[in-house]
């Protein structure tokens, strides 16, 4: 399972990279979103998969839990990546509105250089 998920995140990274290298700014935004999915999967895989119970202490005595730390990290990351996506999206939208293009090749530098 771990290997499979790692390969899945590898595929996601490949797709994300390809999108990041695109000209259209929307593709770039999507690429970052896909990157964060890959990262989340990677982090949770590092803690080991399905080797214990849900990390909630119950009344019954359960000794093995899955690693809670990656989960906490990912939870933080999910919310942050939403915020980052929103910011990038807004910037690209604003850039399109002001400059009239969403093509990164035309979006280089400013006239003040």
């Amino acid at each position: 399972m771990e290997t499979l998920i790692t390969i899945l995140s590898g595929v996601l990274v490949t797709v994300g990279t390809y999108l990041l290298l695109s000209k259209s700014i929307l593709r770039v935004v999507l690429g970052t979103a896909i990157f964060s999915h890959a990262a989340h999967l990677l982090i949770i895989t590092m803690g080991g998969l399905k080797t214990g119970n849900v990390p909630i202490l119950g009344d019954e005595d359960v000794s093995a839990f899955v690693d809670p730390l990656p989960q906490a990290l990912i939870l933080t990351s999910i919310v942050i990546s939403f915020a980052v996506t929103a910011v990038i999206l807004t910037i690209s939208y604003r850039a399109y509105q002001t400059l009239g293009t969403d093509n990164l090749e035309e979006l280089r530098g400013s006239k003040y250089d």
Binding site: T6, G10, V13, T17
Partner: peptide
């Protein structure tokens, strides 16, 4: 683009597998 992305993905996968 394709070569770079595949290389990045492959490096990522290999490192992750080794790290585990």
């Amino acid at each position: 683009k394709l070569v770079v992305s595949i290389a990045v993905g492959a490096t990522f996968t290999v490192v992750a597998l080794a790290a585990q």
